[in-house]
Amino acid sequence: MNSKITGDTIISTKNISKTFSRDIKALEKVSLEVKQKEVVVIIGPSGSGKSTLLRCLNGLEEIDEGSITIDNTPLDGHHHNRLKIRTEVGMVFQNFNLFPHMTVGDNIRIGPRHVRKQNQAEADQITDELLKKVGIYDKIDAYPRQLSGGQQQRVAIARALAMNPLIMLFDEPTSALDPEMVGEVLEVMKDLAHEGMTMLVVTHEMGFAREVGDRIIFMDEGKIVEENSIDDFFDNPEEKRSKQFLSKILHNGGC
């Protein structure tokens, strides 16, 4: 797997910390480097800071300390830099967050039209292509509530891809889905990984991690506990805490 990663570092965080109100430390001195085309899987118990880490990377949360650099652009106070990063980092949410008052097509078009300033024809073309890619072109005029969860999440992926991002962040993309719909979403994500998209995926889908992940990060209590290759992590985890977690989730049979 690692052979395909030849590119430069595209995400770099140095000692980032984030504290929510009432002294809840969501992130504590997290340093992370991700190379181009790398698929990094982030796992850990709930409240370990996985989602917060993703949300900091596209500016949804402000970090208190440290620095984030994405594609050589620092995520700092400059409006221009922040906007550039937001447009180059796509994000897929656990609850899809599709816009319920717009059709599937409009959900996807809105980014290209209003951020990329593409004309109608260009935006339409991208929308058509992406919907075909995620396999729901026939739903282009449907509203999100008319779609199944799996279909909605595929639309959400297409919406993020419409911005032609360099990096895709997935925040537990299959956690809100009925079990029989998990597969169709993972298939789309696997295709993306094989095309060479740089991906950070917070998930409990260990099968997915093993199949397409290049590297795994195990987080607990706001810190990175273990960073390892996929095979080593599953077969021979270094940290005691990782072992405990693994035995728990593997024992529970799911994933």
Binding site: T87, V89, N97, F99, I110, V115, R159
Partner: peptide
Amino acid sequence: GQWEAGHAIGLSRYRQFRH
């Protein structure tokens, strides 16, 4: 989440609100 989805595709705060 609606604001956040708008934010994530790069819409300005005004456009998140307006659209």
